[in-house]
């Protein structure tokens, strides 16, 4: 791209670089805080005031404790299963749904859209959802985590909007060559909206990675199927003062319980272990944010 390097342009660029640097710094802090906390010596950590700018001492005892927890490893495997299978299934359904909703020639497009959007606002709530899953025989099975949440309506709408931004001429010319709907969808629309699809895959994957509620509800008797986040949540809300606000079972956990100082560090370690892998997803998504994808397919 040819750019005129005017003075105002340069001032703006410099300003932009600095501003984004500051934003990055602020955004980096919570992760750094947790990371440093996880290696800190519990006593020094307690004594420390203000932002954590380095680990207070250096120990790996917290990680040893977390890795000795038998629930962590099992749940790790479960989470990976839910993320991989769940994301694939959801993406497939979302592609189909978005495709139909993007077709002007499809007469039921509007009524269907209204029917779908309506469900974003009204739901029967926890109890009927649970009864349904239990009547379908999915209770305490992995299917209960994946099937009842097969489509996020909002993601489908985003994808539909992206599909509609693809010039109609692309699809039409393919159809003239005898391509069917699925061919148009997978050969033309998917490659041209790769960036948006990558984002939605990430939405689903991250959503699944962070999700704990369906497992808490639909897998009541199977701790061996619980995902990592549910275990993490249990560790986070146990004993910590802010956790107790959420944890109403406080009375059961005897109030005179005294926990070791190390627990604060263990909490940070657990967060790191549960967060770092999913953070690595973004660069793969980012790779697809390249200009000119649409052009490439046009020229094909």
């Amino acid at each position: 791209m040819i750019e005129r390097r005017t003075v105002s342009n340069r001032i703006f660029d410099a300003f932009n670089v600095i501003l984004l640097f500051l934003i990055g710094l602020i955004c980096l802090y919570p992760m750094v805080h947790v990371l440093f906390g996880s290696f800190s010596h519990p006593k020094e950590l307690l004594n420390h005031t203000g932002p954590l700018l380095r680990p207070m001492g250096f120990i790996t005892r917290g990680y040893e404790i977390v890795f000795a927890n038998p629930n962590i490893w099992v749940s790790y495997g479960n989470t990976i299963f839910y993320v991989v299978v769940g994301t694939a299934a959801r993406m497939f359904m979302t592609l189909l749904g978005a495709y139909v909703l993007a077709q002007d020639s499809f007469m039921l497009r509007k009524p269907m859209m209204i029917i779908f959007v309506f469900t974003m606002y009204f739901s029967g709530g926890l109890i009927p959802d649970f009864l349904l899953v239990s009547k379908l025989g999915m209770l305490n099975t992995r299917a209960a985590i994946i099937i009842p949440n097969l489509i996020a309506t909002w993601n489908m709408i985003i994808l539909r909007t992206a599909f509609r931004q693809v010039p109609a001429s692309l699809g039409e010319s393919a159809r003239l060559d005898g391509a069917g709907d699925l061919t148009v969808l997978f050969r033309i629309l998917v490659p041209t909206t790769k960036a948006t699809i990558a984002v939605i895959i990430m939405y689903y994957a991250v959503g699944e990675w962070n999700s704990w509620f369906p497992a808490a509800i639909y897998l009541p008797g199977r701790r061996d199927l619980h995902p990592l986040q549910l275990i993490l949540r249990e560790i986070l809300i146990s004993h910590s003062a802010s956790g107790n606000v959420i944890n109403q079972s406080l009375e059961f956990v005897d109030q005179d319980a005294v926990e070791g100082l190390i627990e604060d560090v263990v909490r940070y370690c657990t967060i790191c272990i549960a967060t770092v892998p999913i953070l690595c997803v973004y660069p793969f998504v980012q790779k697809h944010f390249v200009r000119g994808v649409m052009m490439g397919s046009l020229k094909e």
Binding site: V100, S105, F116, P128, L132
Partner: peptide, 27 residues
């Protein structure tokens, strides 16, 4: 004219009916 579009929409609609509309009686 667009039989395949209707065909594709069947699983989607089915999903919404079963998992979203049936439990709605709970309101």
């Amino acid at each position: 004219q667009h039989r395949s579009l209707y065909l594709i929409s069947i699983p989607i609609v089915l999903y919404f009916v079963v998992f979203k509309y049936i439990p709605m009686f709970g309101v």
